[in-house]
Simulated assay, not measured.
Amino acid sequence: MEGVDAPTSLGELASLAAHDAMARDDLLRRVRELALKYARVRLGRFGAEDLAQDVAQEVCMAVLAAVPTYEERGVPFEAFVYRVTSHKLADVQRAAMRGPTPMGDIPDRVDESPTPEMTALVRDEAAQALSLMQQLPDAQREILILRVAAGLTTDETAAALGMSTGAVRVAQHRALGRLRTLIAELEAGDVA
């Protein structure tokens, strides 16, 4: 950005975005990336890229509405983005659980998407992974989702959860160790 000294944190960008169009555009681009990564992970079992895109768009609109009144209060702006994304995802997930949406037109060509069998296998594996993840404490589960599945850095995860980077690393290490133990127990049960 030419007119701005390239702020690194979302909080700095949010402070500048109320008065600087370039900062606002950069803020929205980064918020969209963060929200889209997280939404893709959380909505993966629904197989709905369009829904993830919609969530990211709604998060951007919420952030854009909040920018004019944003004040730094000691809480990372990433935590606000994470909280808004979580709420939007909950709305989308509730709607997705209600049932399928009607299709307006009949397709003109053969559907190249995965077969029902492949989809069932992927969903079964995803369900098994989610089942194992559900056995972790909430904080460890969120850290794994943000770090491993969404691909956030340790610093980004720490900012989003309001934790230190060291605490994130320790919790991630413990969560992965617990998952290894759970998988070994599961495999031992399948063999016997």
Rank of each mutant, 00 (worst) to 15 (best):
H173T: 15
F80E: 07
A175M: 07
A6Y: 10
A158W: 07
E142K: 08
Q93P: 00
R30E: 02
V168R: 02
A48H: 06
P137I: 10
R30H: 05
Q134F: 02
V67T: 13
A175R: 04
L136N: 07
R123D: 10
E125I: 11
E125G: 14
A48Y: 00
Q172A: 15
Y70P: 04
G177D: 09
R24L: 10
G47H: 08
M133W: 03
A62Y: 02
R73A: 10
D155P: 01
Y38M: 13
V4Q: 09
A129E: 12
A160W: 03
H87I: 04
G151C: 09
L161R: 06
R42L: 11
E2D: 09
V75T: 12
P102D: 13
D190H: 15
I183F: 04
V31Y: 03
A96E: 04
R32M: 03
A96I: 02
Q140T: 02
T8I: 11
L144R: 10
A66D: 12
A150L: 08
M118T: 13
T181A: 12
R98E: 14
T165Q: 07
S164H: 07
R42Q: 12
A184D: 15
D190G: 09
A14R: 07
L16C: 06
V84P: 05
A23W: 01
T181L: 10
V41G: 12
C60A: 15
P116I: 03
D111N: 15
R178G: 00
M163F: 12
D155A: 15
I106W: 11
I106A: 10
G166L: 05
A184F: 06
T119V: 15
A158N: 09
R94L: 09
E185H: 06
R24D: 01
D26C: 10
F80C: 02
R40C: 11
A62M: 07
A184K: 15
T154C: 04
I145W: 08
M97P: 00
A52K: 10
A23N: 05
M103L: 14
D50P: 01
L89S: 04
